[in-house]
Design a binder for these strands. Structure first.
Lengths: 212, 212
DNA sequence: AACCTCATGGTTCATTTGTACTATGCGCGA
DNA sequence: TCGCGCATAGTACAAATGAACCATGAGGTT
């Protein structure tokens, strides 16, 4: 049972060519793992999955076109049995939570040493979850934590862009009192002292992004 | 001259095992490039350089212990002829400027396709700079731009942590009027409407960081 | 010597922000 | 139906912020 007769079939999904190469090479020296496909985007990943269904999908979260967590959800909608192991740079709590909620079986950071990545793939192939202590720790810190509503995130995104409450109100067609109320909720929920700290906390957690 | 008799010797410096593997594999299929060393930190990189001086050092900027730009400067202090090609994820203007100022010959992003990375190594080996248009564009945007003083960055870092001008003043043992003046300078120099936007701009440019 | 930037400290004033409440209507789940 | 969270809107008030100024001393460069 711990030694599968068949090699574990892995589909690698990452938009960085260097990372795809690295993972493929890494698994070539493993006798019980076989890379059966590689993809540089979610769309390609779906096609590769259909072509040759893998035992484990090893994927990054940041990808062009479709966000990684959406890709996980979509993949599992199409193939409910698909087992996904996330391998990414992002330590933001929000990424972790969303990836696992979307159905990922594990979450590893890209600086993980070879043996642990291999072990992670083996675990996931055996239907075991693979969430290292550091990540699990981040996760437990999120439990019981108020999450921001969609509207609050919308408002906080504008705060991050330097908008005043009045400007936010105009942008969203609401009263500036309401805008202020949303900002205050953000402060309370995030435990921030002011709007600036609220923004930095939200960025750290992955709730809002700076690029556009 | 364009076809060197000897293969180009490359030292790979990256704290991600996956990336080291990927690059090594990528260069194995190139007949004119030879990976002569790999390192996961600046310290290791110095040792590897001494052991087998490469023609090109291909390195990441984010590394444990020593910041990449400092590592470049130190390496070129020890070996003035060293040619460094940066391969990183960071697009922040500040990273680019500092890396080139520290003596890097080129700056590539990690999602660069194989052929371009190979071409970059070849160019740097031939003492040519390798700065793709996208990066060069970022660079030109920085010219003539006021840069923040050390004190201003110090202040802005505290602003990012949600500190008020008064708290910043206490922390830095200065008057709250002075703290406010520094914040105002930041707003002016960064072209921000308020302290929150100043922080997000500074983060995007790589002037301040959120982790500690 | 003249000039410049930087860090420092100051004043004044209008605007913004954050705190602390109240309140209404909607939708959802117990 | 009752309660809860959410979005909405409001009031009142104290504190913080940002704009627009001025000024000085230390440390450089030209």
């Amino acid at each position: 049972m711990t030694e599968p007769a068949q090699r574990i079939k892995v589909l690698i999904v990452d938009d960085h060519p260097v990372v795809r190469f690295g993972l493929r090479t890494m698994f070539e020296s493993e006798t019980n793992i076989l890379v059966t496909g590689m993809a540089g985007s979610a769309r390609e990943a779906f096609a590769e999955f259909d072509r040759e269904p893998p035992d484990v999908v090893l994927m990054d979260l940041r990808m062009p076109e479709m966000q990684g967590t959406d890709a996980i959800a979509e993949l599992r909608r199409l193939h409910p049995g698909a087992r996904v192991l996330v391998l990414t740079n992002y330590e933001g709590d929000e990424y972790i939570v969303r990836a696992l909620q979307a159905g990922a079986m594990g979450y590893l950071l890209k600086n993980t040493p070879q043996e642990e990545i291999v072990r992670g793939v083996e675990m996931v192939a055996n239907n075991q979850r693979c969430v290292p202590p550091f990540i699990a720790q981040r996760l437990v810190e999120t439990v019981g934590r108020d999450e921001l509503s969609q509207r609050e995130i919308e408002v906080l995104t504008l705060v991050a862009a330097g908008k005043s409450n009045k400007e936010i109100a105009q942008r969203l067609f609401i009263s500036d009192k309401t805008a202020r109320n949303h900002v205050v909720s953000c402060l309370t929920k995030l435990g921030a002292d002011d709007r600036t700290e609220a923004v930095t906390i939200a960025i750290r957690r992955g709730l809002i992004h700076l690029d556009e």
